[in-house]
Design a protein around this nucleic acid. Structure first.
Lengths: 99, 99
DNA sequence: GACATCGGAAAGCCTAGACTTACCGTTCGT
DNA sequence: ACGAACGGTAAGTCTAGGCTTTCCGATGTC
């Protein structure tokens, strides 16, 4: 899931989709890569459950997947809590410095 | 910053550090890669402001950087809000379906 | 002061994957 | 029915970067 967001081009696509649904051609229009490349990235993002696609005629409209975004958010929030707990424990085990 | 978290090994390191500070050797001990590889990953994580290092004798103790973690968290929270706004706007512009 | 340990640096290899071009299937418009 | 537009797939290239081995500097120990 974070693998998918590890690529800069893919993040660009993802960020554009945050502004609203887009077709493949629209996305590719303002990116410096070819349209097939965008297609490949969208496939990765879709497999990572980060975007969804719906067919509208011959166009494929892609949009952010709220589920995936929530999952990533949850991951880092969990992380944040774990880190806080670790900090608290570290402060607990070395109390000679704080008081 | 997300580039740094795009690698699985680096995420492993990052996740272990969430449990508390560790030395390089400790981290490398329970990872399937060599110690120099861990060093290289830690360098990347440090440049991405995701971890901090403090010298303790000849050991280098690495720990999560709360600043970096907060930044990533903020990034996705911002994203979440943008996506919600986009959804709301989309629902606004296509009201023929809801009422 | 000699020795051992820890960890970063350098050099080199090798695979994953990002990108392109070419092609084809599908759907819409006239 | 025919042509055009949209987009996914295939095949091939080429580079970024992940990993290893080797080496060296720095610190702590006896």
């Amino acid at each position: 899931m974070l693998d998918a967001l590890g690529d800069a081009t893919r993040r660009s696509i993802f960020e554009r989709l945050a502004a609203g649904p887009r077709s493949v051609a629209e996305i590719a229009a303002d990116l410096p890569v070819s349209r097939p490349a965008v297609s490949q990235h969208l496939k990765v993002l879709k497999e990572a459950r980060l975007v969804t696609s719906t067919a509208v005629g011959t166009r494929r409209v892609y949009a952010l997947d709220p589920q995936g975004l929530a999952a990533v958010r949850g991951y880092f929030n969990q992380f944040w809590n774990d880190a806080l707990a670790a900090f608290a424990q570290a402060a607990e085990q070395a109390p000679e410095e704080t008081p």
